[in-house]
Design a protein around this nucleic acid. Structure first.
Length: 422
RNA sequence: GGAGAGAUGGCCGAGUAGGUCGAAGGCGCUCGCCUGCUAAGCGAGUAUACUGGGAAACCGGUAUCGAGGGUUCGAAUCCCUCUCUCUCCGCCA
C-alpha cells in the first residue's frame, strides 16, 4: 500500500511513476474519494463530540426527567451519526479498494521498460561450458536415471507435480540443507519454519490479496491459503509489531514448499520441473531500517549468488525493468541460471526490496529511539534458491555422456558421500 | 468433537446491578531532583491511528479495553456472532 498522504500531495508524480509499470491509471478516483472521506469524517466526528459532551452532562443529572429533551435530541444526533458512518464506510471501502490494488512505486534505480525484454544484465558469473555430446534437458536425464517420475505424479495428483525417487529425492533434500546451512552459518540468517497455510490477513499484508487470489490455492473450509512463497508467513511474523531500532536488520531464512495455481500459464514449461504447482524453496527475508534497505538488497542478492557459485553453476544477474517487477516490489534482481539442456538462462531466484509497501500494509514499524514516532521498516526477500530449479540446473550442468550426473562437491557431504548419480 | 474458564495499555493487574474510564495500582522505561560512587527516595512523563489548526513546537476532535455487529442519550461493563488462549473429556501424528 502506498502512503495516502504522499499520494494526496504528489498525485501527479505517483501516477507518473506508476505509469512506468504499464497499464491504465491506477489512482483514478483517488482524489475525489479522499476528499469525500475527509468531509464525512469532519462532519461525523464533530457530531460525536457534541454527543459525547451532552451524554456526559446527562450522566451527571440524577433526575432524568429534567433532561428528557436532551435525550431526545441526542437520539436524533445518534441517528445522523449512524447514517454518516455508513456513508463513510462505503467511501472507505471504495478508497481501500483503490489503494489495495495499486502496485508499489518503482524505485528510481529500476530501469524503465515494458517487458522482460527490457531487463538489464547487471553481471554474470561462470562460463557456460560447451558439451562434447548433445546436452539433454533435465526431464530426460531425470527419467533416464529413474529419479524423477512425472507420469506417476500425474496419476497421484495431476499435471505439474513431480515424484522424486531415490537419489533425486535425496538431492532435493541435500540442496535444502545445504542452502539453509549456508545462510544461517555464513550469512547471518535465523532459520525459521513457518506454517505452510496462512489466513487472509497475511496474504493481504504481503500483497497477494486482494488482487491475485486466482493464483493461490485456497482451502474450502477454514478460509486459509496454501503459501505461494515463504515470503508470506515469514514477513507476517512481525505484522502489527513495533520493533526496536537495535533489532534491525532482522534476517530470516526459511525452507517451505510453495503452492501456485499457475493460472494463465497453460502450455508454458509443460515439461519437467520448471513450473510446478508445488515446489520447494529456501527463502531469505529481511526487515531493515529504511536507510539500509538498498545496501541490504545487494547483500541479499549476493547471498543468493553464493549458492550458485558454490554449486559451480553459471548465472547472470538481471535488473528487472519497471514493466516486469512484481506488484509489491520497488526493485528486483533476478538470478538466471544457465541450463545447457535448454540452451538458455532461467530464473532461479528473485531478490526484491519492497520499501515500506508491505510494511505499511502489514503494520511493521520501528522506533528510531525510545521517544520517536514509529516508522515503517523496509522489507526485502529473495529466493536462496528455488530448490526444484536448482535440481534442474545441477542435472543439466553436471550431466555426463553416459547419462549419469556428477554431484557438485559441496553437496556430497549432504548426499552420504555420493559422487555420481547413475 | 463435547464441557467449562478467559482475552484490559510494554508487562502484571483493578474495574462488570452501563455514566465524567484511554481506563486505578504496581512494574518497567524516559527526563529532572537528590544522593560522592550502578541502591533507596522525590517530582514529572510514558499507546496507536485517523482528522482539524499551525512553519514548527504544539493544540483540538474522533476511534481503539481480542475482532465484528447490536441495545442505549451514554458500554471495558448488557446482547449476538467470530477468533484465539487455558482446563477436563474424547480422538490422534
Amino acid at each position: 500500500m502506498l502512503d495516502m498522504k504522499f499520494i494526496r500531495e504528489n498525485l501527479e508524480e505517483a501516477e507518473r511513476r506508476l505509469a512506468t509499470r504499464g497499464g491504465a491509471s491506477f489512482l483514478a478516483g483517488f482524489r475525489d474519494l479522499d476528499e469525500r472521506r475527509r468531509a464525512l469524517l469532519r462532519e461525523g466526528e464533530s457530531l460525536k463530540a457534541v454527543k459525547n459532551n451532552v451524554s456526559e452532562e446527562i450522566g451527571k443529572v440524577k433526575d432524568k426527567s429534567q433532561v428528557q429533551d436532551k435525550i431526545l435530541e441526542m437520539r436524533e444526533v445518534s441517528n445522523r451519526i449512524k447514517a454518516l458512518d455508513e456513508e463513510l464506510k462505503q467511501v472507505d471501502d471504495e478508497l481501500s479498494g483503490v489503494l489495495m490494488t495499486v502496485p508499489n512505486l518503482p524505485d528510481p534505480s529500476t530501469p524503465l521498460g515494458s517487458s522482460e525484454n527490457d531487463n538489464v544484465v547487471v553481471r554474470s558469473w561462470g562460463e557456460p561450458q560447451p558439451f562434447a555430446f548433445p546436452a539433454k534437458p533435465h526431464w530426460e536425464i531425470g527419467e533416464g536415471l529413474g529419479i524423477l517420475d512425472f507420469e506417476r505424479a500425474a496419476k497421484i495428483t495431476g499435471a505439474r507435480f513431480t515424484l522424486y525417487r531415490g537419489a533425486g529425492a535425496r538431492l532435493e533434500r541435500a540442496l535444502i540443507s545445504f542452502m539453509l546451512d549456508l545462510h544461517t552459518e555464513q550469512h547471518g540468517y535465523v532459520e525459521v519454519l513457518p506454517p505452510f497455510m496462512v489466513n487472509r490477513d497475511s496474504m493481504t499484508a504481503t500483497g497477494q490479496l486482494p488482487k491475485f487470489e486466482e493464483d493461490l490455492f485456497r482451502l474450502a473450509d477454514p478460509d486459509f491459503f496454501l503459501i505461494p512463497t515463504a515470503e508470506v508467513p515469514v514477513t507476517n511474523i512481525h505484522r502489527n509489531e513495533i520493533l526496536k531500532r537495535s533489532d534491525l536488520p532482522i534476517c530470516y531464512a526459511a525452507y517451505t514448499p510453495c503452492f501456485r495455481r499457475e493460472a494463465g500459464s497453460y502450455g508454458k514449461d509443460t515439461r519437467g520441473l520448471i513450473r510446478q504447482h508445488q515446489f520447494n524453496k529456501v527463502e531469505m527475508v529481511k526487515f531493515t531500517h529504511p536507510s539500509e534497505s538498498a545496501a541490504e538488497l545487494e547483500k541479499l542478492t549476493a547471498n543468493a549468488e553464493k549458492v550458485l557459485q558454490l554449486l559451480e553453476l553459471p548465472y547472470r544477474v538481471m535488473a528487472l525493468c519497471s514493466g516486469d517487477i512484481g506488484f509489491s516490489a520497488a526493485k528486483t534482481y533476478d538470478l538466471e541460471v544457465w541450463l545447457p539442456g535448454q540452451s538458455c538462462y532461467r530464473e532461479i531466484s528473485s531478490c526484491s526490496t519492497f520499501g515500506d509497501f508491505q510494511a505499511r500494509r502489514a503494520g511493521i514499524r520501528f522506533r528510531e529511539d525510545e521517544k520517536a514516532k514509529p516508522e515503517f521498516v523496509h522489507t526485502l526477500n529473495g529466493s536462496g534458491l528455488a530448490v526444484g530449479r536448482t535440481v534442474v540446473a545441477v542435472l543439466e550442468n553436471f550431466q555426463q555422456a553416459d547419462g549419469s550426473v556428477l554431484v557438485p562437491a559441496v553437496l556430497r557431504p549432504y548426499m552420504g558421500g555420493l559422487e555420481r548419480i547413475s
